[in-house]
Design a protein around this nucleic acid. Sequence first.
DNA 1: CTGAAAGCGCTTACAG
DNA 2: CTGAAAGCGCTTACAG
Lengths: 341, 341
Amino acid sequence: MRKKITLKQIARELDVSISTVSKSLRNSLEISEDTRQKVQAFAKFYNYKPNNIALSLKNKKTKTICIIIPEIIHHFFATVISGVENVANENGYNVLVCLSDESFDKEVINMEMLANGSIDGFIISLSKETQQKKDFHHIVEVINQGMPVVMFDRVTNDILCDKVIIDDSLAAFNATQFLIDKGFKKIALLTTVDYVSVGKLRTEGYVKALLNNELQVDEDLIVKIEDTENFEHNIAKLIQNNDVDAIFAVNELFAVTAIKEAYKLGKKVPDDISIIGFTDGIISKYSSPSITTVSQNGIKMGAKAAKMLIERLESEEEEQQDEQYSTEVIETELVERESTI
Amino acid sequence: MRKKITLKQIARELDVSISTVSKSLRNSLEISEDTRQKVQAFAKFYNYKPNNIALSLKNKKTKTICIIIPEIIHHFFATVISGVENVANENGYNVLVCLSDESFDKEVINMEMLANGSIDGFIISLSKETQQKKDFHHIVEVINQGMPVVMFDRVTNDILCDKVIIDDSLAAFNATQFLIDKGFKKIALLTTVDYVSVGKLRTEGYVKALLNNELQVDEDLIVKIEDTENFEHNIAKLIQNNDVDAIFAVNELFAVTAIKEAYKLGKKVPDDISIIGFTDGIISKYSSPSITTVSQNGIKMGAKAAKMLIERLESEEEEQQDEQYSTEVIETELVERESTI
DNA sequence: CTGAAAGCGCTTACAG
DNA sequence: CTGAAAGCGCTTACAG
């Protein structure tokens, strides 16, 4: 059990000063070829690696970024992490992952715990509870301390910072228009409660598309789902009581559940009902029938968010922060599969 | 933009020494009630929080653990992270997530990069490439440095450390036996190449079950899939050329693909072919028909792994390491759904 | 009760 | 060319 070796030990062994060792290892020209060689050989033999924590303290940066997400079980968020990881690693950064579990308190605790020097910046998608409370003091505080934050997907206009989003409203508009173009008249919407920012925006896009085509918005066809458990009967009721011929769902869970409920009620997808989902995840891909969906490229979003954060971190060093925040919109597209005619 | 305040600044403002400030904040009895109050009030007002990095350097521990997984996109690994997070947070630890992308080199780089003081310990599931190469020097080295490692799921006997696994062979045996009990005779196996430890063990369980029931093992019915892309035709060929009446797949991707390929060939699941998968993920749950599967509780595995790691970390402080490693086996069970009669 | 000093492991401006 | 000193932000044994 050979513990890690330090500069101090090397210095003692070779009978030189710590400064000399440090400089030798950093290939300083100040040091004679001879000692440099000697020190480097010794260090290599003992597999010396500088202690990261000491470097962090000295440099006042940790080369670690933190991503806070509501749930890792959601495939979309997992893909975002993957995108963040790629870019972070390429740039020599590590990624700390925190889960808020959709809880405001956990989000706050996580941020406060890490804002004390442990990391260089945050990438965050708001928890449901935070969006509901509209309390963003923890994020504002971190930004005020001079720590950069990039928000993605579930963002808020109440905070000024870099953001990565998709055009949820437009994507929903296009999906709905696609159904309208197919000739469907009774198009239902499965959405979340309004305080979830993306749910609300998607609902708006749906409504806009209907109005744009002079179709009337029937409240009975709009189902707002609060809980992600036990919502099946809401969907079943919708299908049973209304003669819907198409459904637009704001996530893939709602979409696949609609397929199953329709099937139970003797309706086939896409023959009797066409269905479009949102988020191109594995459920959509492997469901039978596979689901036509709005693709929301998580890897790309994560990569972009990481890039923005790291650029800000690295630019901070040179000149003064310019405080010009930007919002990047990642393209979406409709992936046609078997659940639509 | 109020930067974080330090002990030094507080000391200067209040015209006392740094030691006095530090002790006051830690409620040391050495300090007079009076100064203590004054310092604490001031610190609270300026929202003082000790710098984590400085504490890490001082205490020689970071309260951060790292989990290295092959892919985050796999639902199983995402659930493991979730389990690790829960336990880690409860104990005041943060979780760094690294992805090896099934690559040996990335695994090595990640470990070496973090073994220099950045974290207190590792939780790891081996990449495919590492299992193939059987080169574990990076892990051995870390352990020799005195940093605890807990392996899970894809483990190896070549390394002595704490491990969390399921009994892959037994679980596969039971799944196969289940099919045999239903009266099936031509039971096919969709598995991975042998160097993936869990694939190999599951294959062994399958073979054992057949032999145990005096059924012969037909090599034509065993499909070993190397690549996770473009393997559909292998499965199609199996179904087409052999009159299989049941299939046991070692993961859910293979299982759901089998359903789709069978369907294309005009065979229905479960009417014509019964299928059992492995890993109770979202694909199995939302597939149509939903898939009977061996549940492999990722949350539980992650939680257990984190618990073992943290216990070792905290016990290290007190007495000398006892070097008694243990292997925990997490229970599995067969979740019956629609893909089996 | 308060503070100077040493130390965690490193880097670097400054002396010699 | 080499090394002592200061410093990153903290804690704590030791003096006073």
